[in-house]
């Protein structure tokens, strides 16, 4: 296994996860096989409980698989690493640090310090300033996170993750708590970042439209046990704009994925129950 060539950025083989205290015995993840290419933007979507966040957290090294393995650049993932940066849904910024202080946080860590010369420090400051510009928050560099809107906070979290030039960006429903307008702005921003930073992005969401608009491929997962149902290549050009959401290929793919999620998430049985309840109340 060691000498085998793994050409993909990420290779996941027969990966499984059963939680320690699981009473149902149902695997959180079962036999996951997936490759992510260099510089790909791949999105994971599925009903809650399908294990998409767990899979992402295993790639980040924050959780461990109980079977199978995952490789990043040919190296087995067995813990967090600075080359795999993560953006969380919320509460991950440090409220006691300014916006700039948050972005530069990783610079102060031993792991990233190495042999620092003054020109390195200059380059790092330049990088932080460039990222501030990139996310459009250079005017609030000295503000504290709680003075910013939710969308601005997530931009800071993205810039912070990008500071050390990670080769991979793992995003766990990063825009899930934002309003629809902010989300659209964030979508175009993250696509722009992907283009110029050349990072590989794995993006978890429960929003099918978001998954299609951002992803080059959409991985649809299903719950009980958590597994991959199918992988859809998105039939759109790499460079996206909001109008594409109204094109036929986009709408068709969205309808197909949504139908599949509805089918697998147990909505059908809920409807039966609802019918029964309605019948009962009208009989009374």
């Amino acid at each position: 296994m060691k000498n085998e060539i793994l050409p993909s950025k990420v290779t996941i083989r027969h990966l499984g996860k059963v939680y320690d205290g699981s009473t149902t015995g149902v695997a959180a993840l079962q036999d996951i096989n997936l490759s992510v290419e260099h510089n790909e933007f791949i999105t994971l979507v599925g009903a809650s409980g399908c294990g998409k966040s767990t899979l992402l957290r295993i790639l980040a090294g924050l959780e461990y698989a109980t079977s199978g393995e995952a490789y990043c650049d040919g190296k087995r993932i067995d813990g967090p690493g600075a080359e795999r940066a993560m953006v969380f849904q919320h509460y991950s910024l440090y409220p006691w640090l300014s916006v700039l202080g948050n972005i530069k946080f990783s610079r102060g860590l031993k792991a990233n310090r190495g042999d620092i010369t003054s020109s390195d420090v200059e380059a790092a400051s330049g990088r932080a300033d460039a990222l501030l510009n990139l996310i459009g928050l250079d005017k609030v560099a000295d503000s504290f996170p709680n003075q910013l809107s939710g969308g601005m906070q997530q931009r800071v979290a993205i810039a912070r993750a990008l500071l050390g030039r990670p080769s991979m960006l793992l995003m766990d429903e990063p825009f899930g708590a934002l309003d629809a307008q902010s989300r659209e702005v964030m979508h175009d921003m993250i696509l722009h970042i992907h283009r110029i930073e050349k990072t590989t992005i794995v993006f978890v969401t429960h929003d099918v439209e978001e998954a299609i608009y951002l992803g080059q491929r959409v991985v649809l997962m299903e719950p009980r046990p958590g597994r991959i149902h199918s992988i859809y290549p998105v039939p759109l050009p790499r460079s996206r704009d909001q109008d594409m959401k109204h094109t036929a290929p986009f709408r068709e793919l969205k309808a197909e994925i949504l139908a599949r999620i509805r089918e697998s998430s147990g909505m059908a049985t809920d409807l039966e129950l609802l019918d029964k309840l309605c019948a009962q109340s009208s009989a009374m």
Partner: peptide, 12 residues
């Protein structure tokens, strides 16, 4: 998330 963010940034 504050702790995990630090972990993914390489903090000891």
């Amino acid at each position: 998330a504050q702790i995990e963010a630090a972990q993914t940034m390489g903090a000891s």
